[in-house]
């Protein structure tokens, strides 16, 4: 009986998909992959020589000093900040998974407490 249960548990676990990886489950919009490389800035229409990401309007301003650099608003996803934003606090689409996992964990815990108590009583 115990072997059957163990085998069933392994099968069940193997069948589950890990869906917590933000990079894997996030929409392209969240990851900013809809941003295409462009030769011009849509915000101001200025031609740029360097290949850079395109950004929605209002997310950046050009460097007032006139260089090719531009400055982003604080808290806005931009170049090299994936590590910062690919975290659970910023990815609200995985928050539901926290609730789902909480329910599963509490159910498993309850089952385990009852089962181990029953086994101890009947040993």
């Amino acid at each position: 009986m115990r072997n059957v249960l163990t085998f069933a548990a392994i099968l069940l676990i193997s069948a589950c998909r890990t869906d917590y990886d933000i990079e894997e489950v996030a929409t392209a919009e969240f990851l900013g992959q809809d941003h295409v490389h462009a030769d011009s800035c849509e915000t101001c229409g200025e031609e740029t020589t360097e290949v850079e990401h395109d950004h929605p309007e209002g997310e950046h301003v050009h460097d007032p000093a006139g260089s090719d650099r531009h400055i982003h608003e604080a808290g806005v996803r931009n170049h090299g900040t994936e590590w910062f934003f690919n975290q659970p606090w910023a990815a609200d689409f995985i928050w539901g998974k926290m609730v789902r996992d909480s329910v599963i964990l509490v159910l498993l815990a309850t089952g385990l407490i009852i089962l181990s108590g029953y086994r101890r009583k009947n040993r």
Binding site: M98, V99, D101, S102, V103, L105, V106, L108, A109, T110, L112, I113, S116
Partner: peptide
Amino acid sequence: VYGLSYMVFMLAV
């Protein structure tokens, strides 16, 4: 809630 649930699970184990 997630942390507390995992805590309860670990205590049960």
